[in-house]
């Protein structure tokens, strides 16, 4: 039976992890490579890096991190943030990323996902959708890390990226992100019910029950979380044991 995945996400800015600071066992709290290794040794099913470096000139920094991490972590590695063209994807994959997450560039031009999945295969193309609720059961797509609003309906957009070759959807609720009040389960459900590719839930996890809700109520294939793992509130293993105790199948 296919297991539900737990994916810790590391936000990286100018080569340093910006959220994770509370690992007692860390020598260098800001080192993304060291943190990724701890997650991978702790049973993470995948590792996700989100490069939130503002400037474009710093692409080499994230590539170097990916290169070093890929030599030490032997679980899948997804990298996103600032991916604008085919060359960016090529560079990340050559550095050792297994999947690349794309966002703004796809909203601008849906053909980008088509081109990317044709060139590299759907298996490594993740489309990140940042969605915000605008009325009951209606969400719009946002870009540039949630700063810019578009008029695109999130559910329609999800169907469209699937049609154009996306292998997975990484769905973040802008309303819930950072609130620790749980995923937007309605949003998740609306999208998992109308697509046939795996959806990764993101944004809002504060307790282990939220992970359960994302999978069981929202229909997500994987759950992504940042702060509950970074600040040491829970270990990956605890999250998995909890889900397992509630009959959610995970890789133990």
């Amino acid at each position: 039976m296919l297991k539900n995945r737990i994916i810790p996400c590391l936000d990286v800015k100018n080569g340093r992890v910006v959220k994770g600071i509370n690992f007692v066992e860390l020598k260098d709290a800001g080192d993304p490579v060291e943190q990724a290794k701890i997650y991978s040794d702790g049973g993470a099913d995948e590792i996700c890096f989100l490069d939130i470096t503002a400037s474009n000139e710093n692409r080499e920094t994230i590539l170097d991190i990916v290169r070093k991490t890929a030599k030490e972590c032997f679980v899948p590695l997804t990298v996103g943030g600032g991916v604008r063209n085919i060359q960016n994807i090529t560079d990340l994959l050559l550095a050792g990323a297994d999947k690349v997450s794309i966002n703004t560039a796809v909203v601008k031009d849906i053909n980008f996902v088509k081109e990317a999945s044709k060139k590299f295969g759907s298996q490594c193309i993740v489309v990140a959708i940042d969605a915000k609720k605008i009325s009951d059961k209606k969400w719009n797509v946002f870009t540039h890390g949630g700063r810019n609003k578009t008029e695109i309906d999130a559910v329609e957009f999800a169907k469209n990226v699937e049609k154009n070759g996306a292998g997975e959807i990484l769905l973040t609720s802008m309303d819930k992100d950072g609130t620790k009040s749980g995923y937007d389960v309605d949003l998740l459900k609306s999208i998992t019910e109308c697509t046939n590719i795996p959806v990764i839930a993101s944004g809002g996890v504060g307790t282990l029950d939220h992970l359960y809700d994302g999978i069981v109520k929202g229909g997500a294939s994987a759950v992504l979380a940042a702060s509950i793992f970074h600040y040491g509130e829970f270990k990956i293993k605890e999250a998995k044991e909890y889900l397992n105790s509630k009959n959610v199948s995970v890789r133990l």
């Binding site: 296919l2 099913d45 292998g167």
Partner: peptide, 16 residues
């Protein structure tokens, strides 16, 4: 065979 959408494709993740 995804059994009319019952199984998501690609088959991504950890399986026994």
């Amino acid at each position: 065979d995804n059994q009319n959408g019952k199984f998501k494709l690609p088959h991504i993740g950890w399986n026994e």
